[in-house]
Lab assay of single mutants.
Amino acid sequence: DLSALRVEEVQNVINAMQKILECPICLELIKEPVSTKCDHIFCKFCMLKLLNQKKGPSQCPLCKNDITKRSLQESTRFSQLVEELLKIICAFQLDTGLEYANSYNFAKKENNSPEHLKDEVSIIQSMGYRNRAKRLLQSEPENPSLQETSLSVQLSNLGTVRTLRTKQRIQPQRTSVYIELGSDSSEDTVNKATYCSVGDQELLQITPQGTRDEISLDSAKKAACEFSETDVTNTEHHQPSNNDLNTTEKRAAERHPEKYQGSSVSNLHVEPCGTNTHASSLQHENSSLLLTKDRMNVEKAEF
């Protein structure tokens, strides 16, 4: 173990290094160091905050020279020094078990990766560091076993998940096959086929009936047209017969005018059967003409 005197000496050296690497504005270890034209180094955030307070150039807090945003430059070497100082402080805390008085939040800088452990060898070769390295080497064999167990647990979990997924996939297939086998029997399929065939026959029977009705309507229309044509021909046949009657009536009127007047009046009210309204109107006109002729003949006879 380190003596108290040596611990104090190391602590004083760390404090001196820390004062050199402090920012003059925030009085902390410089984060993202930036250098000016006057070779003074500050935190990048502190300098941008200072420049944004005034429009135009501002003055350096140490030498009062003008500073602009374009004049600022990043210093990589200074950032490396800060990183190495942080590593020294971490090693000091691990070796002594004491917390550094002016320690900052170094938890963000710590890294437990194997590459980081290899890099620590180049920091300080001390008894405390050696003991700590031995402890780490002793704890390393235990870690692979834990990793193997965790991997086995994960693989077993994956296997159970896969088996569950396969079961879920197989179950719908089985149910679907069961439904297909038990849903419709052979008799049901035959009945469905016969039902479809009967429906098709009914459709075939319905369509000819409609065509037959249309044919019957067409035949009825044709018969009505033929009947009207026969009526017209009958009226045409009746007209010459009426003319013959008129000639006979004229002759009778010349011989017996008194008797014919009474008979002509009675004939006005008689309509021949089986004739249309057109034929009756023609008869009325003929009878009126005959009456006028008879009157003329009677007057001539009187004179």
Rank of each mutant, 00 (worst) to 15 (best):
D1V: 06
L2F: 02
A4S: 10
L5V: 12
L5S: 13
R6D: 06
R6P: 04
E8P: 06
N15T: 08
M17H: 00
Q18H: 10
Q18S: 08
K19N: 03
K19Q: 05
L21Q: 00
C23L: 00
C23V: 00
I25D: 01
C26W: 00
C26L: 00
L27G: 04
L27K: 04
L27I: 01
E28R: 02
E28D: 09
K31D: 07
T36P: 03
T36F: 01
K37H: 11
D39T: 10
D39N: 06
D39W: 01
I41V: 08
F42N: 01
C43R: 00
K44E: 04
F45N: 15
L48V: 13
L48H: 07
L48N: 14
K49L: 02
K49R: 07
K49A: 03
L50Q: 01
L50Y: 15
L50D: 00
L50A: 04
N52Y: 02
K54V: 04
K54R: 10
K54W: 01
K54T: 06
K54C: 02
P57R: 08
P57N: 13
S58Y: 05
Q59V: 09
L62Y: 02
C63V: 00
D66S: 08
I67G: 02
I67V: 10
K69L: 10
R70E: 11
S71G: 05
S71P: 06
L72N: 09
Q73V: 15
S75M: 15
T76K: 09
R77P: 06
R77S: 10
R77I: 14
F78R: 00
F78S: 15
F78H: 15
F78K: 00
S79H: 11
Q80H: 10
L81F: 05
V82W: 06
V82P: 05
E83P: 15
L85G: 05
L85I: 11
L86H: 06
L86N: 06
L86P: 07
I88L: 13
I89V: 05
I89H: 09
I89C: 05
A91T: 01
F92T: 00
Q93F: 00
L94Y: 01
L98R: 10
N105S: 05
N105C: 04
F106G: 06
A107D: 02
K108Q: 01
K109S: 11
N111D: 15
N112S: 12
S113G: 02
S113C: 10
H116Q: 15
V121G: 13
I124D: 09
Q125C: 05
G128A: 14
R130H: 13
R130V: 11
N131G: 14
A133T: 06
A133R: 08
Q138V: 07
S139G: 11
P141Y: 11
E142P: 12
N143V: 09
N143L: 12
N143H: 14
P144L: 10
P144Y: 12
P144F: 07
S145G: 04
L146G: 14
Q147I: 11
Q147E: 14
E148C: 11
T149I: 04
T149L: 07
T149C: 06
S150V: 06
L151G: 15
L151S: 13
S152T: 07
V153K: 07
Q154P: 14
Q154T: 09
Q154V: 05
L155W: 03
L155D: 01
L155P: 09
L155F: 12
S156M: 05
S156H: 08
N157R: 05
N157Q: 09
G159L: 02
T160I: 05
T160L: 06
V161A: 08
V161N: 06
V161K: 09
T163G: 13
T163K: 07
T163C: 08
T163N: 09
L164R: 09
L164D: 00
T166P: 03
T166F: 02
T166G: 07
G182R: 04
S186Q: 13
S186T: 05
C196Y: 02
S197K: 10
D200F: 04
Q201S: 15
L203S: 15
L203E: 14
L204N: 06
Q205T: 07
I206N: 01
T207C: 02
T207P: 14
P208S: 07
Q209T: 11
G210M: 15
T211K: 08
S216P: 03
L217Y: 15
L217D: 02
L217A: 05
D218C: 04
D218V: 06
D218G: 10
D218Q: 02
S219K: 13
S219F: 11
A220G: 15
K222Q: 05
K222L: 14
A223Y: 11
C225Q: 11
S228N: 13
E229D: 10
T230S: 01
T230G: 09
T230P: 15
V232N: 07
T233G: 11
N234F: 05
E236T: 13
Q239K: 12
D244R: 12
D244F: 06
T248A: 01
T248M: 07
T248V: 12
K250Y: 14
K250C: 05
A252T: 06
E254L: 01
E254I: 12
E254S: 15
R255V: 13
R255W: 04
R255I: 03
R255D: 10
R255N: 12
H256E: 05
P257Y: 09
K259G: 11
Y260S: 12
Q261I: 08
G262Y: 01
S263M: 09
S264E: 08
S264K: 11
V265N: 13
N267Y: 08
N267S: 15
N267I: 03
L268S: 15
H269K: 06
V270Y: 03
E271R: 10
E271K: 12
P272C: 09
C273Y: 14
C273Q: 07
G274P: 05
G274L: 12
T275F: 12
T275A: 13
T277E: 01
T277R: 07
H278F: 15
H278A: 03
A279I: 01
L282V: 01
E285K: 12
S287L: 11
S288E: 06
S288F: 06
L290Y: 14
D294G: 10
M296L: 11
E299Q: 05
K300N: 10
